[in-house]
């Protein structure tokens, strides 16, 4: 029915061209996040973990709009983005459980997902860290004569950190092929955006850097893709960067320890009525791509698949102790495994 069965990142990525696969992937992201929450309760996840249930349309809308060799930087709230870009549920859950089959071999954890094969640099646990790095990736692409672009995904709270402003300015004066994507989910940790940020739309900050600032409906994957398409085309033809603000919402708290009691009553329910999975499912039903009752079947199938991936993870080993000292530098154990971004 769909290609979600493949664990190969590039295959999973290419599959996103298919409409039904886009829905499948959003359902998969939701199912993985829910399973991770359970794994946390079961004691398989250490430290912290930041779920993105509710933000699936942003992830899939970005991933379907860019090429697999475009570069993406992203934050600790990155499970959904990694899955959308092509990282398999086994590699994501495996990483979060600290197993050798994780995408960083179990050395990184929930906040540090990575897959160069589909352009994903290690997700950063420091707010704002990914924006300057995306500028550099864009510089490298231009220096190499490729029409490759870079996308940086970050939150609304990150728009108050120096790296945001410096990167937008830097990208603008150098006309770098970067798409800055702000996921405005209304909160930075436990603080509502109005208490930290004097503008309602982050997108208007683009004006200071003389680049387009676009607000998009982050709950509608097609709207996300539409906004991306314009920005990506502009970047590829040398027109410079764009700032896109995706209006979205995280259903859970900031991290595993946060019950999100600071949210006004009814807010979550209102957002649940505009659930990104339901919105796309309804559209696909209208387009006769999804059969009646198809969403429930899809959810059941994906839930089974995620459960199988979870079992595979729990049956797999932790990394060898020798990995502690591997890949610190080129001289370290593990050898030089450099990914060649320019082979294609």
């Amino acid at each position: 029915m769909t290609l979600s069965n493949s664990n190969v990142p590039i295959v999973r990525r290419e599959a996103l061209k298919n409409r039904l696969e886009q829905l499948t992937r959003m359902v998969e992201i939701r199912a993985v996040e829910e399973r991770i929450q359970k794994l946390f309760a079961e004691g398989h996840v250490r430290g912290s973990t930041h779920l993105a249930s509710g933000q699936e349309a942003v992830s899939v809308g970005i991933a379907r709009s860019i090429d697999p060799d475009d570069i993406v930087t992203c934050t600790y709230r990155g499970h959904g983005h990694a899955l959308a870009l092509g990282v398999s549920p086994t590699a994501v859950i495996g990483e979060i459980c600290g197993r050798v089959i994780g995408c960083a071999g179990g050395l990184g954890g929930s906040m540090h997902l990575v897959e160069p094969e589909v352009g994903l640099l290690p997700t950063a646990a420091i707010v704002g860290a990914g924006l300057p790095i995306a500028c550099g990736a864009a510089m490298a692409a231009r220096a190499r004569g490729k029409d490759r672009i870079a996308v940086s995904i970050f939150g609304d709270g990150s728009a108050n950190i120096g790296a945001f402003h410096e990167s937008l300015n830097f990208a603008a004066i150098r006309k770098l092929p970067v798409v800055f994507v702000c996921e405005n989910n209304l909160y930075g940790e436990y603080t509502r955006i109005q208490l930290s940020t004097p503008v309602e739309d982050i997108a208007i900050r683009a004006a200071s850097y003389n680049m387009p600032g676009v607000v998009a409906d982050g709950q509608d994957v097609d709207k996300v893709a539409e906004a991306m398409a314009t920005a990506v085309a502009r970047a590829r033809r040398g027109g410079g960067p764009t700032l896109i603000e995706m209006k979205t919402y995280r259903y859970s708290g900031h991290s595993r320890s946060d019950p999100a009691t600071y949210r006004p009553a009814g807010e979550l329910d209102a957002w649940l009525k505009r659930d990104p999975i339901d919105i796309l499912a309804e559209r696909l039903a209208g387009e006769k791509i999804l059969a009646p009752g198809g969403l429930d079947q899809l959810k059941a199938d994906i839930s089974d698949a995620v459960e199988r991936a979870t079992m595979e993870v729990l049956d797999s080993p932790a990394p060898d102790l020798g990995e502690i000292l591997s890949h610190v530098g080129a001289h370290s154990a593990g050898g030089d495994q450099r990914w060649n971004f320019w082979s294609k």
Binding site: G98, L107, L321, I324
Partner: peptide, 16 residues
């Protein structure tokens, strides 16, 4: 500590 970043996986951090 060894000259390496702090590993995530439980057994490795315990050894670290």
């Amino acid at each position: 500590l060894p000259e390496a970043p702090v590993p995530y996986s439980g057994a490795l951090e315990a050894r670290f």
